[in-house]
Design a binder for these strands. Structure first.
Lengths: 128, 128
DNA sequence: ATTGTATTACGAATTTAATCGTAAACATGA
DNA sequence: TCATGTTTACGATTAAATTCGTAATACAAT
């Protein structure tokens, strides 16, 4: 089986991946500016993190021009699922429903969002 | 406002909290034995973690008898919600529905669980 | 060419989390 | 009392994640 090695991104790495997923690809500067909308960070810190991510294989990069362009190398859906599943098993006794109830119950979820989920459930039930 | 300081439990601390929540209270030995069902861990490591949790205020403890009894000091629902919300905002662009769809879609969720969620949504919609 | 600016590379320092060895305190039972 | 086992306390070590200073490199403008 290939790809047995599951790389677990850290908190900071996830933030960076999120920017990359949203943009398809990005320079360090772009990522950094996106991040600093939310939190403090030095430029070289972001750079270093992205270099480490490259070593880990979380991203690839195009180094043709001096300003490197970073591309996410892990799938968004897969990564999200991996993290959500981990949380479900470690914090919700393996019950997705329990987790969903927390997520929906505590949040001011909009009617539109509830509808989306309802539809999803219908689809899932149909598959059974 | 009181309780401004939000303590963010680490991964290991969450595992311990989960045991404490399930039991109401527990000794280090109980917690440790519960943990080692799932993973490797030395007794003093578990002890140390629980002592640190006590320093942080994540647990209280009764030291009347030599064998101390630990009691969770943070609310289960609140803590779960805090973590789920953080994940929604950092990894799902703030959309609970997106997160739920990942959680349900990728998982082999049982029909019973789907039903539970459906009911929950009905309740939430009724409240609007 | 020279200067100024942006970028990468490198490595060190710091911080936080996790692990574990050892000793002291205490209780129990022989 | 003495030996044994359990528990706590303490501190050191390791490991992982994060931060950042500094230098080298490239590029552009003058």
């Amino acid at each position: 089986m290939r790809n047995t090695k599951v790389i677990k991104p850290t908190e900071s790495e996830l933030e960076i991946l999120t920017v990359l997923w949203a943009n398809g690809e990005a320079t360090v500067r772009t990522v950094h500016e996106e991040l600093t909308k939310t939190k403090e960070a030095g430029y070289t810190t972001t750079l270093k993190l992205m270099q480490i991510m490259h070593e880990k294989g979380l991203v690839t990069r195009n180094t043709e021009s001096k300003t490197h362009i970073y591309i996410p190398a892990v799938d968004k859906q897969k990564t999200q699922l991996q993290i959500v599943n981990k949380m479900i098993s470690s914090l919700f006794a393996g019950s997705p429903a329990d987790m969903v109830m927390q997520a929906l119950g505590g949040n001011n979820t909009t009617a539109a969002e509830l509808k989306k989920i309802e539809d999803l459930i219908k689809t899932l039930k149909a598959k059974k």
